[in-house]
């Protein structure tokens, strides 16, 4: 079954019958027994029916809501004056930063001075990326710090309420006169 078909069947089945179609449940490992057990453990009526991948959409939604980031990125600004772009960006940047600081604690991976000699303390390429004349061994004592990197020390995103529809990043707005 194609994923789209599965998705639609799941959607309408949940909407009208309050349950997943059996084959979908089986395919994704949501068996009835598991669901009953989960209910018994979690006393809250809001069992999370959302996937963790919805977090990406949630983040987009937050940055749009607080800082209008999606509006800014999706707009064709080829004809706009730099001054106009600057004014808009200043506001978007300020609010997106506030929002980031609220939901994450970001810190540099290496807290050093960029452009200065820095010792290499990790060989994990996901943490420290080596550039330039990297020796054959792939190991070096140290080098110039080009970029401090960013690390999320803490993530504090709100739980997603099922009725919030994560795929809607920003609702349409209609003003009643």
């Amino acid at each position: 079954m194609s994923r789209i078909v599965l998705a639609f069947r799941s959607f309408f089945s949940i909407l009208f019958r309050d349950t997943l179609p059996e084959e979908v449940a089986k395919a994704y490992g949501y068996s009835k027994a598991g669901a009953v057990k989960a209910k018994a453990v979690a006393a809250t009526p809001m069992a999370p029916e959302v996937k963790t991948s919805d977090g990406a959409l949630q983040m987009l939604g937050i940055l749009q809501r607080d800082g209008r980031l999606v509006d800014l990125l999706m707009e064709d600004i080829s004809g706009a004056q730099d001054e106009q772009i600057g004014a808009a960006f200043r506001s978007v940047q300020e609010q997106c930063r506030d929002s980031l600081e609220k939901y994450f604690r970001l810190s540099p991976v290496i807290d050093g001075v960029e452009g200065s000699y820095t010792k290499i303390e990790s060989s994990d390429p996901a943490v420290v990326k080596l550039l330039g004349n990297v020796p054959a061994s792939g190991k070096a004592q140290g080098g110039l710090l080009r970029h401090k990197g960013w690390r999320a020390e803490r993530v504090d995103l709100p739980k997603i309420v099922p009725s919030q529809k994560p795929d809607v990043i920003a609702p349409a707005e209609i003003e009643i006169e």
Partner: peptide, 18 residues
């Protein structure tokens, strides 16, 4: 201090009042 009112619809940059 700049005071900015962003554009109302999706036309954010174009509609910005500063």
């Amino acid at each position: 201090h700049p005071v900015t009112i962003l554009g109302k619809g999706t036309g954010l940059v174009g509609g910005t009042i500063k």
